[in-house]
Simulated scan of single mutants.
Amino acid sequence: MTETATDGARAVVKVMVVDDHPMWRDAVARDLAAAGFAVVATAGDGRQAVRRARAAAPDVLVLDLNLPELPGVQVCKELVGSLPGMRVLVLSASGEHADVLEAVKSGATGYLLKSASTEELVAAVRRTADGDAVFTPGLAGLVLGEYRRLAAEPVAERGTADPGAPRLTDRETEVLRLVAKGLSYKQIADRLVISHRTVQNHVQNTLGKLQLHNRVELVRYAIERGLDDPADSP
């Protein structure tokens, strides 16, 4: 049974599947339910997805980009803004770099190609629920490369740092540095010899202090400040 930790209890991860092809949508929903997830809703177009997601409040939204009525990236933008506790895993047939970057900039925390196996999908949904940024092999480097490109732009083009930004603890900074390097929560926990849950707590505290919404925004924040510099490795 796939579960997420809560204070004093464990709850089944709630998942919603959005795709305009009924057979594909039903198959994905069936596979995820068989793996122990609670499939709380499905939708076949963008506007329906927004309505049903707001009603069902899933933990993870498995989202296709090519949708009628409202594009997947717009669905992502609207829902990430109104359901900050929800994470979005894009499941798309497109591996085009522009599509990947647009999805991430819209708030998606992961991007998986439809050529992935059922086992890969299940693992990706589980990791997304745990707070990891999950990408089809090769795409993670693309996203990190784009963030580094943006970070290299003149400060005047991307805004100056807020001198009144909240201070992070040494441990939060240490975790943030490893997040910026692309390590998963489990890898960070192993590196720092702390629990997976403790890593999650540090990341959530950092997100709150910096007023960011998800791990993807956190990675960009860290890279813009040079925290992915190999010279800073612990």
Results as ranks from 00 to 15, higher is better:
residue 51 R to G: 09
residue 205 N to S: 15
residue 197 R to V: 13
residue 58 P to T: 11
residue 42 T to Y: 04
residue 207 L to F: 05
residue 196 H to N: 14
residue 36 G to P: 05
residue 70 L to C: 07
residue 172 E to H: 01
residue 21 H to Q: 14
residue 69 E to N: 13
residue 176 L to E: 01
residue 214 N to W: 09
residue 118 T to L: 07
residue 73 V to T: 15
residue 206 T to Y: 01
residue 211 Q to N: 14
residue 164 G to S: 14
residue 82 S to R: 13
residue 94 S to L: 09
residue 87 R to P: 01
residue 53 A to C: 13
residue 197 R to A: 14
residue 221 Y to T: 02
residue 120 E to D: 12
residue 168 L to A: 06
residue 84 P to A: 10
residue 172 E to Y: 02
residue 172 E to L: 04
residue 36 G to Q: 08
residue 46 G to C: 07
residue 127 R to D: 14
residue 203 V to N: 02
residue 99 D to K: 01
residue 100 V to W: 00
residue 110 G to W: 00
residue 31 D to V: 14
residue 99 D to V: 00
residue 157 E to S: 15
residue 40 V to K: 11
residue 168 L to D: 04
residue 175 V to M: 01
residue 50 V to T: 06
residue 218 L to V: 08
residue 220 R to E: 15
residue 36 G to R: 06
residue 195 S to W: 05
residue 224 E to C: 09
residue 198 T to A: 14
residue 190 D to S: 13
residue 228 D to P: 05
residue 206 T to G: 08
residue 149 R to F: 13
residue 106 S to D: 00
residue 74 Q to W: 08
residue 220 R to W: 10
residue 90 V to G: 00
residue 20 D to T: 02
residue 176 L to C: 05
residue 167 R to V: 14
residue 230 P to C: 12
residue 41 A to H: 02
residue 10 R to S: 15
residue 177 R to C: 11
residue 109 T to L: 10
residue 130 D to P: 04
residue 136 T to K: 01
residue 27 A to E: 09
residue 165 A to E: 13
residue 200 Q to T: 14
residue 143 V to R: 01
residue 35 A to F: 05
residue 54 R to A: 11
residue 169 T to C: 09
residue 202 H to R: 12
residue 148 R to L: 05
residue 103 A to S: 12
residue 57 A to G: 08
residue 161 A to P: 09
residue 128 T to Q: 04
residue 153 E to Y: 15
residue 10 R to T: 15
residue 142 L to W: 10
residue 24 W to R: 06
residue 31 D to K: 12
residue 120 E to V: 06
residue 228 D to F: 07
residue 137 P to W: 08
residue 124 A to G: 04
residue 20 D to I: 00
residue 175 V to I: 11
residue 219 V to G: 01
residue 24 W to A: 15
residue 1 M to Q: 11
residue 218 L to M: 10
residue 28 V to A: 11
residue 90 V to L: 03
residue 63 L to P: 03
residue 8 G to L: 08
residue 201 N to R: 15
residue 48 Q to L: 09
residue 17 V to G: 03
residue 113 L to H: 02
residue 222 A to W: 03
residue 76 C to S: 10
residue 59 D to G: 06
residue 58 P to C: 13
residue 115 S to Y: 03
residue 60 V to M: 05
residue 192 L to K: 09
residue 40 V to Y: 09
residue 94 S to N: 08
residue 14 K to G: 12
residue 136 T to D: 05
residue 113 L to N: 01
residue 129 A to N: 00
residue 191 R to K: 13
residue 186 K to T: 15
residue 103 A to K: 02
residue 157 E to M: 14
residue 220 R to C: 10
residue 204 Q to C: 06
residue 221 Y to D: 03
residue 114 K to Q: 07
residue 18 V to F: 05
residue 96 E to A: 13
residue 9 A to K: 14
residue 58 P to K: 01
residue 230 P to Y: 07
residue 197 R to Q: 12
residue 15 V to N: 01
residue 73 V to F: 04
residue 32 L to V: 06
residue 183 L to C: 11
residue 148 R to Y: 05
residue 204 Q to F: 10
residue 202 H to F: 10
residue 210 L to W: 07
residue 143 V to H: 00
residue 44 G to E: 09
residue 14 K to F: 03
residue 189 A to S: 12
residue 184 S to D: 11
residue 63 L to N: 03
residue 182 G to P: 04
residue 174 E to A: 13
residue 115 S to I: 07
residue 4 T to S: 12
residue 135 F to D: 00
residue 157 E to N: 13
residue 94 S to T: 09
